[in-house]
């Protein structure tokens, strides 16, 4: 499926089949989750990153079913197409944003998602303790979501942020790399 076709599909599904909630509600709810985690782990931001990723993973495992049910897509023929579908359909229908797919490696197994806007990060200031700026990946939930969702469609990926405007970087960029395609599980033998 071409990029334009994917974009049209994302637009169409977002307009017709998605229940919407106020964006600020999402932003504030997510903000309070992260704030609470920071409190619970007493400023251990690496652990907070890990927890956000785990929460995202569990969301992703289920969100993929919702995605498939709403879009009824064809199976992607290669990882490039998968990337386009994630950016133009997945992010579009669930967050109403379309990150840019960029920086492919030559073996077509790694790409970046560059977020021009990120509803999770609106109104956010990272704690001014000298560490959060270097350690906390505020939107790390999204990495987990991608990891979980793609695992369900037989792709093991690694996803992590490499820059975030909240940290003072110029862009918000997530790096996604394909580890392997997962083989179908075989049924256990009787004995």
């Amino acid at each position: 499926m071409s990029a334009t076709k994917a974009a049209r599909m994302g637009e169409e599904v977002w307009k017709t089949r998605i229940d919407k909630v106020n964006a600020e509600l999402v932003t504030l709810t997510y903000g309070s989750i992260v704030a609470q985690l920071c409190k619970d782990y007493e400023g251990d931001y690496l652990e907070v990153n890990k927890q956000l990723d785990k929460m995202g993973y569990n969301i992703g495992l289920r969100l993929i079913e919702d995605y498939l049910a709403k879009t009824a897509p064809q199976r992607c023929v290669n990882f490039r197409e998968t990337a386009e579908m994630i950016a133009r359909v997945g992010f579009k229908i669930f967050l109403n944003i379309t990150p840019t797919v960029a920086n492919w490696t030559s073996d077509n197994k790694q790409f970046s998602l560059v977020f021009e806007e990120n509803p999770l990060g609106d109104f956010v200031e990272l704690p001014d303790d000298g560490r959060a700026q270097n350690e906390l990946w505020y939107s790390n939930l999204l990495c987990g979501v991608l990891r979980g969702a793609l695992e369900m469609v037989q792709m093991q990926v690694d996803a992590h942020f490499v820059s975030d405007t909240l940290r003072g970087n110029e862009t918000t960029e997530m790096r996604v790399s394909l580890v392997r395609y997962i083989d179908d599980e075989l049924p256990q033998s009787e004995d």
């Binding site: 993929i64 079913e65 498939l68 897509p73 199976r75 369900m152 469609v153 037989q154 179908d184």
Partner: peptide
Amino acid sequence: LHYYETPTNL
């Protein structure tokens, strides 16, 4: 027997 499989192998 009728069969339908989702991309998530359900």
